[in-house]
Simulated scan of single mutants.
Amino acid sequence: MTRRAEQVEETRQRIVDAAVEVHGTLGPSAGSISAIAERAGVTRLTVYRHFPDDEALFAACSAHWLAGQHPPDPAAWAAIDDPARRLETGLTDLYRFYRDGQPMLTNIYRDKAALPAGSRSGLEANDAAIADLLAAPFDGAAERRRLVRALVGHATSFWTWRSLCVDHDLTQAQAVAAMTDLVLRSGR
């Protein structure tokens, strides 16, 4: 790689690092291009040269942040046929991810309306897919399935985890047990 190409890549990485820092501390709604440029030590024009729009910058920021995380593994949960075990395993994995990524995830979910449209719809689709996967093994009448899906959607919500584990100081195990019990009791 030529020295010029290395400098371009270094500048791009400084911008991405700055975006992760700004989004993780201030949140996306306060993460203006100016704030990111200042943190990266570049001009706004330089940011736009590397990332032509907010969607591209947010995607690079998200990919970089996620690369440093241990995301949940829905494929492993899908292999579990027993509804209660799948739900408990999935919530345990999901709540661990929420705990480990709490500062960034709090800002992302708080500022969800300010996210670029594609990123916002991707986040919503991912959240819905997780809830659908954990609710899928439950069978029964349509009304029962609707209730179970609503409760699983509530249980998988970042804000539910935050309320139980941060605001009310439950352990992860207590929160998982409470949400699993709620779904199982209501789904009977």
Rank of each mutant, 00 (worst) to 15 (best):
M1H: 13
T2V: 02
T2Q: 06
R3K: 12
R3D: 14
A5T: 12
E6K: 13
E6A: 13
E9S: 10
E9G: 02
R12C: 05
Q13Y: 01
V16L: 01
D17T: 06
A18M: 00
A19D: 01
A19T: 02
V20W: 00
V20A: 02
V22N: 01
L26E: 13
G27F: 04
G27T: 01
P28N: 12
S29P: 00
S29Q: 09
A30C: 11
A30M: 12
S32L: 04
I33R: 11
E38G: 00
A40C: 07
V42S: 04
L45N: 11
L45D: 13
T46F: 04
T46N: 06
V47C: 07
V47A: 05
V47D: 02
V47F: 03
Y48F: 15
Y48G: 03
H50K: 01
F51Y: 00
F51R: 04
D53V: 05
E55F: 01
A56G: 01
L57E: 03
L57D: 00
F58L: 08
F58H: 08
L66C: 05
A67D: 14
G68Y: 01
P72E: 13
P72W: 09
D73N: 13
D73M: 08
D73T: 12
A79Q: 11
I80W: 04
I80D: 04
D81E: 14
D82K: 05
D82P: 08
A84D: 11
R85H: 10
T92C: 07
D93K: 06
L94M: 06
L94N: 09
F97V: 06
R99S: 12
D100N: 14
G101L: 06
L105Q: 09
L105Y: 07
L105D: 10
L105S: 07
N107R: 15
R110V: 03
P116F: 00
G118M: 02
S119N: 14
R120Q: 10
G122D: 06
G122S: 10
D127R: 15
A129N: 11
I130G: 02
I130H: 11
A131C: 10
D132P: 00
D132N: 14
L134G: 08
A135V: 05
A136Q: 11
A136L: 03
P137D: 07
P137Y: 01
D139A: 13
A141S: 11
A142R: 13
R144V: 04
R144D: 05
R146I: 04
L147H: 14
L147D: 08
R149S: 10
L151G: 09
V152N: 06
G153F: 01
H154D: 07
T156I: 10
S157Y: 05
S157C: 11
F158K: 04
W159E: 14
R162E: 15
S163F: 14
S163T: 15
V166N: 09
D167W: 11
D167A: 12
D169L: 15
L170A: 08
L170E: 10
Q172Y: 08
A173R: 15
A173N: 07
V176F: 04
V176W: 06
A178T: 12
M179S: 14
M179P: 07
T180Q: 10
T180F: 01
T180Y: 00
L182H: 06
L182G: 03
V183M: 07
L184A: 09
R185S: 14
